[in-house]
């Protein structure tokens, strides 16, 4: 049997596109959660002035932590852009009749949480942008808390996503 025919039998185009959307959704969330956790750990390890090991010579470490955080911000916003795109795509795969009841209620909780995450993340990125520009640079502790909060909210969004996907 020719390979294209076999592929079409095993994975129809519609199923393939849904698989691609779901895979992108999971990958983007992995980037967002993993990066926030990494940024939080780095800021905790290298950029906490209250840590016993911290000295004035730790300044380069703060700069390194800011650079890592900035790299994460690029990835985070790319991931969030992909998450919203694929999230709506996932919703579209259930259309035209979206599930109601408990499923609908969970979605109505998840979406405002995502919006709150977006607003909070915009503030977090602006904190870092200001730090890079040397304008009212936030304390490493503030940034540390921002990344920890980001990771926690993302985990909550993941949990709600799990409920939507698997009940």
């Amino acid at each position: 049997m020719p390979v294209p025919a076999l592929t079409a039998t095993v994975l129809p185009p519609l199923a393939a596109s849904r698989l691609a959307i779901r895979s992108l959704h999971v990958l983007a969330m992995a980037v967002a959660v993993g990066g926030a956790t990494l940024a939080w750990i780095l800021l905790r390890r290298f950029a906490d002035p209250s840590a016993p090991s911290a000295t004035p010579t730790d300044a380069p470490s703060v700069a390194v932590a800011h650079r890592v955080a900035a790299a994460y911000e690029w990835l985070f916003w790319a991931a969030l852009g992909v998450l919203v795109l694929t999230g709506v795509g996932n919703l579209g795969s259930l259309a035209p009749t979206l599930p109601g009841g408990r499923w609908g209620l969970v979605l109505d909780v998840k979406l405002p949480l995502v919006l709150a995450l977006l607003v909070g993340s915009a503030v977090r990125t602006l904190l870092l942008v200001r730090a890079r520009a040397g304008v009212d640079p936030p304390s490493p502790l503030t940034l540390r808390h921002a990344y920890a909060a980001t990771a926690l909210v993302l985990l909550l969004v993941v949990a709600l996503g799990e409920v939507l996907a698997h009940g």
Binding site: G81, G87, S121, V129
Partner: peptide, 14 residues
Amino acid sequence: WSLATFHVTVLVAL
């Protein structure tokens, strides 16, 4: 980049 993506995602998700 961050503000552009913030605008687009809110414009869709809201």
